[in-house]
Write a protein that binds this DNA or RNA. Structure first.
Length: 621
RNA sequence: GGUUCCGUAGCUCAGUUGGAUAGAGCAACAGCCUUCUAAGCUGUGGGUCGAGCGUUCGAACCGCUCCGGAAUCACCA
């Protein structure tokens, strides 16, 4: 049952019985704030023009009507214009039974919509860094969240494997590499190629210096540096499919992909489709022709094609070079078009940094002007903020880039040290210690990044390692591990765990493992006899039942941070409960059973929520 | 200059379509392990929600104007 719907319908009926038909926006219902008694609150101000009474009188009138007519409403109180309604314990018991019995809790029914989400999109000339980590984690998590919202999700990666930057690495390797390979150097492929990209830049700068010393202007020197001219020559050869250049390109890209695969695997992200720009960069030209025909685009004297967007507050934008070759926009128009057609997409999401906001604004506008508004409207640029260091932006030239592989390794090492220090690794095999350190280190990193609203610029200070206490991934993982530990102990002690709502199958007659009462009856009985459902337990049930709403909201807003906040709140709340109430030592078997089940459901939802963030949770830590 | 975005505690961040006395974590200080894992729990201090107008019964949230910061406005991708 959807609780919010239930409440708002009940309130609507009460209000309409008292004041006649209402408009939609006149009913404002929200969760009651912690500091007041009650579960849900009606804000009466919008109703006053109907009731023609004071806020207090209106609230009291509706509250009285509801306690008299709605069995689930136990009591109410009025504070200023706010009507706080308290639901009966058995109501929450029934909700809990529903949650426990729902094997796919948090997973929405299929919507039939197909959504493609493109993320990662690396260049093949250097290894991944912290910025890519944010991109990958966001992309993967949003994909998980959309799947949980019932969509068919296609995870796509568009690899930028061509262009002058690739040639720079290739050329530097050819000139200075002495045949070095990942195998010969023991270096990860992407790092090796990245090394030569840096090497290129070093020589390039030296040559510029030399040329300016000879009297050339800086601009001339940049153009005339021999190494740059050679790189451009190499690009031309590549485009002409020169066998030697092409083969080198394939080899070096192969190294990079091997390296990326390792990083992706470490991050726990994957893709359903990988596109290579070398195969798509010629797309989009037919769309340009179409635009010219429709008079949306125009051709300049030098034969280049443009669109004038000044009427929309933007600028004039180039769509095709004078020599007929594509630019970024041409390609993106083409790939967008092809993807919608090939995959029958309902939505297309690009996880790309906010530095490209303008590009996507233009992309959508151009598609719209071409008459593809139905697609344009279903393109979302999931624009995320940069990750900054205390001294500002990461700059590869200044060596302030935080390398993805290094960071991951550091996090795992820190996790291991911390675990050892706390004595958590005693009695563990080496494999277990590895597995837990990896889980916790990555959990800390991922949560740290995903808990921040995607669109905000975020700060990362490499000098202070990421926290493991407080609002962190390990805190949530730890809560899960503690619950699992309790459940293990219960099983070992042979405590009755065969709870009817612990399982997905309906109770079978003759299945002796199950008690005779149903879950709901069990809870209700307990609630009636006052043995179960302490206020803290009701609070936990309330929070548990909000999980689907959190999943929905995270999906609507493409915001893993909403899941993060939810799971943290749940874990925190459970920790307080755990501290105050013993589960295994509870003597009343019925109460103990419910507490075990409550703990089990909290663990389940934590696991499920963390899965949406791409974070694993350990059985012990 | 145009466009887009951001500004909340010393620091890092929440704050769901406008609601009650603005919340967490870190850092600081004070407590809690003979008791299901102390990576935990409890308490204390800490705020002109960048500023000012306006809309409203009610604004951190909506509108306008400033101030401060970021990105972008390439025949790069």
């Amino acid at each position: 049952m959807n609780i919010e719907t239930f409440i708002s319908e009940a309130v609507r009926q009460a209000a309409e019985a008292l004041y006649g038909p209402l408009e939609g926006e006149e009913l404002q219902i929200q969760k009651t704030r912690k500091e007041f008694e009650g579960d849900y609150t009606l804000v009466t101000f919008p109703l006053l023009r109907r009731s023609r009474k004071s806020p207090e009188a209106t609230a009291t009138e509706i509250g009285t009507y509801m306690t008299d007519n709605v069995p689930e409403i136990k009591s109410f109180n009025v504070i200023k214009g706010f009507l706080n309604l308290s639901l009966d314990g058995s109501f929450w018991a029934a909700r809990f039974a529903e949650v426990a019995a729902d094997a796919s809790f948090g997973q929405a029914a299929p919507t039939g919509r197909t959504v493609m989400i493109e993320y990662s999109s690396p260049n093949t000339n250097k290894p991944l860094h912290l910025g890519h980590i944010r991109n990958n984690l966001l992309g993967y998590s949003v994909a998980q969240i959309l799947a949980a919202n019932g969509h068919n999700v296609i995870k796509a990666n568009l690899v930028n494997d061509r262009g002058i930057h690739i040639c720079k690495s290739m050329l530097a390797w050819k000139l200075y590499g002495n045949g070095e390979t990942p195998a010969s150097s023991g270096m990860k492929g992407d790092h090796l190629v990245g090394k030569y990209y840096v090497e290129f830049d070093k020589h390039y700068k030296a040559q510029i210096k030399e040329l300016t010393a000879q009297g050339q202007s800086e601009e001339e020197a940049k153009k005339n540096a021999p190494i740059m001219l050679q790189a451009q020559e190499m690009l031309r050869k590549w485009e002409a499919k020169d066998p030697e250049v092409y083969s080198l390109w394939e080899t070096m890209n192969g190294w990079v992909y091997e390296g990326f695969d390792v990083t992706y695997k470490a991050l726990g992200v994957d893709f359903d489709k990988v596109y290579y720009e070398s195969q798509t960069y010629l797309l989009g030209k037919s769309l340009v022709e179409e635009g010219l025909k429709k008079g949306v685009f125009y051709r300049r004297d030098d034969n280049s094609v443009w669109i004038d967007l000044t009427g929309d507050g933007l600028d004039e934008k180039l769509l095709l070079r004078g020599d007929g070759t594509s630019v970024y926009m041409t390609q993106d128009l083409g790939t967008a078009f092809r993807r919608f057609e090939d995959n029958k997409l309902d939505d297309m999401i690009y996880v790309v940094g906010n530095e490209q906001n303008y590009h996507f604004q233009v992309l959508k506008l151009v598609l719209k002007k071409l008459g593809y508004a139905d697609w344009s409207d279903h393109i979302t640029h999931l624009s995320y903020g940069m990750v900054e260091l205390p001294e500002g932006k990461m700059k590869s030239r200044e060596g302030t880039v935080v390398d993805a592989d290094d960071l991951i390794a550091d996090m795992v090492t820190t996790a291991r040290e911390m675990s050892a220090e706390l004595g958590k690794l005693e009695g563990c095999t080496a494999e277990e210690a590895d597995a837990v350190s990896t889980m916790v280190g990555l959990g800390a990193l991922k949560y740290f990044i995903l808990k921040v609203d995607p669109k905000k610029t975020m700060l990362f200070d490499p000098r202070e390692s990421i926290d493991f206490n407080g609002n962190t991934g390990p805190f949530i993982q730890y809560t899960h591990a503690r619950i699992r530990s309790v459940l293990r102990k219960a099983a070992e002690a042979g405590i009755d765990m065969a709870l009817p709502f612990a399982t997905t199958e309906p109770a079978q007659p003759g299945n002796s493992a199950r008690p005779e009462r149903s879950a709901t009856e069990d809870c209700q009985h307990a609630a009636e006899t006052g043995q179960l459902l302490l206020p803290e337990e009701i609070d936990l049930i309330k929070t548990l039942s909000e999980y689907p709403a959190a999943v929905r909201s995270a999906g609507d807003n493409f915001a893993p941070s909403i899941i993060g906040a939810y799971v943290y709140e749940l874990a925190k709340q459970f920790n307080g409960y755990y501290h105050d109430h013993s589960i295994l030592k509870e003597e009343n078997a019925e109460v103990r059973r419910l507490r075990l089940q409550l703990a089990a459901q909290v663990a389940r939802v934590i696991r499920s929520g963390m899965e949406l963030l791409g974070i694993e949770v350990p059985e012990r830590m």
